[in-house]
Write a protein that binds this DNA or RNA. Structure first.
Lengths: 139, 139
DNA sequence: GATAGTAATAAGAATGATTCTAATTTGATG
DNA sequence: CATCAAATTAGAATCATTCTTATTACTATC
């Protein structure tokens, strides 16, 4: 029993995630990202959720993405200075950017590997976030 | 015996590196980066080399940096969407961004570690470039 | 060493992703 | 339903970077 009947055939999204109230706009952004594994840009999210929310604004998409990132519901991914991309995979992982096709693939670490074990960090370092980016091609 | 006497007391820079003709502007950009380990931005490079070349333009600094990067003489380093920074350290290494002070530290890998060994890459992947970024604080 | 052709530089305009501003709407609460 | 805070909207502003065009500097050749 849902509180409204609008979301049949769509992924149910709770009213709140990690303390963030999931407004209609945030739901659409999040739902789209969950079903999309191509790491879309803010603009791509905007184009797509306009289908469900024709009056949504690009600023709102940026606001939603920022809120989702800050509440650790999605991750922001940057390649050089290209437009930021967004990723619903919260597991620790890197990104491989295939230069031939332009596609982006998540890269997992081999089991048992702890990133901080292999890095020569200064003592007393508190790591909040790690980003690994690879560029190349699938031969 | 140099071809001119202008560079006394400065690091001698060859006329060509990796096939790139080292013009006066490229020399100044490169010389500054070599002596500076703070990973300066294009604008910081610009401000500084103006002392030696008062008529240099910001566009030229960007051109020089791009040429140096493309000829693998320096590396471009990006943190999120902040202005790009430039680094003369060509060894494979990552960057630790200390949020408290805003400073950036090079991070080496522990001896014997090969990055591709610990990543679960798709088969037949040719890696051209790896970037590792850490954010946190020195407690 | 003058000349022609190419590369590099300079100055300022243009671009484009992102952020900001101000006004409106929505939602939660009493 | 009145109130207050939060979210959304539309459009303007920002700012690192790139582009354009004109000028200048090199290089190679005569």
């Amino acid at each position: 029993m849902t509180t409204n009947g609008l979301q049949h055939r769509q992924t149910e999204i709770p009213e709140e995630i990690n303390g963030l109230r999931m407004t209609r706009q945030r739901q659409e952004v999040y739902r789209f990202l969950m079903g999309e594994r191509t790491h879309p840009t803010a603009n791509e999210v905007f184009m797509r959720i306009k289908e469900a929310l024709p009056h949504v604004s690009l600023a709102t998409v940026y606001n939603c993405l920022e809120a989702l990132v800050q509440h650790k519901i999605i991750r922001q991914v940057n390649f050089d200075r290209e437009p930021s991309r967004y990723c619903p995979n919260l597991d620790e992982h890197g990104h491989f950017h295939d230069e031939t096709t332009g596609t982006i693939h998540d890269v997992k670490f081999k089991p048992g590997i702890n990133l901080t074990d292999i890095l020569d960090l200064p003592p007393n370092t508190v790591i909040k976030d790690i980003e690994i980016t690879l560029r190349g091609q699938l031969a």
